[in-house]
């Protein structure tokens, strides 16, 4: 059977999100949108930020294609960010990146990231970090257009 390392990379929550993603489907009507491509594999994503009246995101919509990691990561981000303000999202993107680039040294805080903490297994696979980061990089870029 596959190794425990592989099982930790592809945890059930990741496989579930990659099969039944949350937030998939673009809405349009926002300047805060970003298209990102991973040139090494051709994976791509378009992500939109929609802020509600209360200042938190009412919707983080995305569309794209890619591996299970990138699709699950977009799905998990979409679900999480819908309770966050832009400032919180900005902070979380930094924390997420730091953990993923730590080669396993920094665990993702489950209190902050909930199910997305399952993506922590990716940090041991340096070639896959960019897969998990794709949606988050798109969100980071979209944030810069939020006030434009």
């Amino acid at each position: 059977m596959s190794s425990s390392e592989l099982q930790s990379l592809y945890q059930q929550v990741i496989l579930d999100h990659s099969k039944r993603p949350h937030g998939r489907g673009l809405v349009g009507d926002t300047a805060a949108s970003s298209h990102q491509v991973n040139p090494t594999c051709g994976d791509e994503i378009t992500l939109e930020l929609h802020v509600g009246d209360d200042g938190t995101f009412e919707r983080v919509a995305w569309n794209g294609s890619g591996c299970a990691i990138s699709q699950a990561s977009a799905s998990l981000l979409s679900g999480l960010a819908e309770d966050w303000t832009p400032a919180v999202l900005q902070e979380r993107i930094g924390q997420f990146r730091e953990a993923l680039r730590s080669r396993g040294a920094i665990e993702i805080d489950e209190d902050l990231f909930e199910d997305a903490a399952a993506l922590g297994g990716v940090s041991r696979y340096t070639a896959r970090v960019k897969c998990a980061m794709l949606a988050w990089v798109a969100a980071e870029d979209a944030l810069t257009r939020l006030d434009a």
């Binding site: 596959s2 592989l6 990379l9 994976d43 591996c67 299970a68 990691i69 699709q71 696979y125 897969c131």
Partner: peptide, 8 residues
Amino acid sequence: HSHDVGQF
């Protein structure tokens, strides 16, 4: 996805 195939 091919990346997942390759990882497996």
